[in-house]
Amino acid sequence: MKMGMRGAAASVLILAMGTTGVALSQQPAAAPAAAKETSNLNSKQKLGYAIGGDVARSLEAIKSHIDLAAMREAVQATFDGKQPLITQADAQKTDTALRTSMAIANGQQVPGQAPGSAPPKVDNRQVGLMLGSYMVGPSLAELKGDIELDALFDAVKTAFDGGQPKLSQEEGAAILQSFMATKQAEMQAKAAQLGQTNRQEGNAFLAKNKTVPGVVTTASGLQYQVIRPGSGERPLPSSKVKVNYEGKLLDGTVFDSSYQRGQPVEFGLDQVIKGWTEGVSLMPVGSKYRFWIPGELAYGENGTQGGPIGPNATLTFDVELISVQP
């Protein structure tokens, strides 16, 4: 949940537009229905019904093509960490058939289809598996501990059948808003705690590391060590450079490596984190340095969205300067 979170409200818009090409706002609004009594529902059920209502509204245009049992099966498999129940190739074929069938049904001319030709056959089970495996399941996987799937699919089925929902659209929206606000507060508190821990661990590491022979600490707090000296020119902070590099967390986890990709990279030193701008400017061409970059010179309090670099994380980089361009 990286905000944040891939919440239900966002995922359903992807479903509506990605599958049918029809924006949610273009679909006819459903007539409001009175909600059933909800006092006996627990929080997971309420969230399931709220999300299910959104999913149903997003998929209204293609509901006749969806096998809900198959979609439920695929979502459950995703929640359980299993492989998708339909291959990407078959999902693509199903998506194409569905798009073509919908376009023809709406009187649109489809390239490659003769005017007046019958729409292609759409396998409803395949559609359900496609939606569950590649759209609904992945979009909601991070919420799997917060929702009840029975409630979610009961809401979808009720809506598809034109029945009376347990939650009105307004109630569902309020539940989603409250849930996302609570989750965001939890995430912010967790990030703050992690940021404090990372800062403390980084400071302790750097304090010890600066006593290692050969390690130099600059005024900014950047630390470096010359692994291989070079004799070429040094870049300016505004120069474009070509480098090979590998970045690690303090626990040794490699999070980025041009060596692994088998190809050096080029970029301007004014386009990277502060620690890189300062550090690489110290290097002559042909040299290889190791840098230890404190969090405030790296990705700061935000880290990288979705990881793997946490807030205030101290990073290690091995950098090999290949060339400098004006």
Rank of each mutant, 00 (worst) to 15 (best):
G221N: 10
Q263K: 14
Q223W: 01
A8R: 06
Q169C: 02
A298Y: 05
M283Q: 13
A89T: 10
A155K: 09
Q200M: 11
V212C: 06
S11A: 11
N106R: 15
G172Q: 05
G162E: 05
I104L: 15
F153Q: 06
R57M: 11
R228C: 07
L297Q: 14
I227M: 12
R99D: 09
K208W: 05
T217I: 03
V319H: 14
A29N: 12
R228F: 03
K63S: 10
S58L: 01
S168V: 00
L321S: 09
F79M: 11
A189F: 02
L167A: 08
G286Y: 04
A191Y: 02
D318W: 03
L85A: 11
I62H: 03
G132K: 04
F205A: 11
T277P: 08
R199F: 06
I309E: 06
T316L: 09
V12M: 09
A114N: 13
I227A: 09
L176Q: 11
E266N: 07
P120C: 07
L131N: 09
M180H: 11
G232L: 00
E171G: 12
N124R: 09
N40L: 05
A189H: 05
N244H: 13
G300A: 05
G232P: 02
V319G: 12
I273D: 12
S323A: 12
P294F: 01
F267S: 11
Q177N: 14
A8Q: 08
M1I: 06
K240H: 07
I66C: 08
V265S: 13
P264E: 10
S323H: 01
D54E: 15
